[in-house]
């Protein structure tokens, strides 16, 4: 069992086998193998406090079928189920997705990283700059030169629904 401590000092106890899905944590555990018990405490301070929970939920779901994922031998039914589960898992607000991406990146969890990026790109697709700005709460602060830069605007497009 190892212990993860988040930035707000919450503790999360996780089976080593489960946490191993993070390549970063796996390396750390490997480095400290055979040392004191205190060394099985890992601080993940650069990760928002809600995120470890989500990450661990993700780990547990995937931990149940690691062999099958690795060998792509999952049955169709199971694969569908996992897909549904992941869709639900990633169906969250864009801030959480942002944190998940950062966490998956720093903890090195490739599948979580890909999934979160995919979801964000889905959100960005077919949304105007204003909509994206609103969702992500990014302020539009362009310099004068950037404002001048000519990028074609959506007005130039003829959309399907105008002719439907």
């Amino acid at each position: 069992m190892i212990t993860l401590i988040s930035s707000d000092k919450r503790k999360f106890h996780v089976l080593e086998e489960v946490a191993n899905q993070s390549l970063t944590i796996r390396d750390v555990i490997e480095d400290r193998r055979g040392r004191r018990r205190a060394d099985r405490i890992i601080l993940v301070t650069n990760i928002n406090s809600k995120i470890p929970e989500k990450v661990i939920v993700y780990w547990l779901r995937h931990f149940l079928m690691p062999e099958e994922i690795a060998h792509a031998s999952m049955s169709h039914k199971k694969a569908e189920k996992l897909k549904k589960w992941e869709a639900k898992f990633f169906d969250t607000d864009i801030d959480t997705l942002n944190d998940l991406i950062l966490a998956a990146d720093s903890l090195d969890i490739p599948s979580l990283f890909d999934g979160a990026c995919e979801k964000v790109s889905d959100i960005l697709k077919n949304r105007s700059a204003e909509e994206v700005g609103e969702i992500s709460k990014i302020e539009n602060e362009f310099t004068h030169e950037e404002e001048e830069e000519e990028i074609p605007s959506e007005n130039a497009w003829v959309w399907r629904n105008e002719f439907a």
Binding site: L124, K125, N126, R127, S128, A129, V132, G133, S136, I138, E139, N140, E141, F142, T143, E146, I151, P152, S153, E154, W157
Partner: peptide, 11 residues
């Protein structure tokens, strides 16, 4: 989408 939208979100 990158050109038309994302690149216009912020600096």
């Amino acid at each position: 989408d990158v050109l038309l939208h994302a690149s216009k979100v912020c600096s």
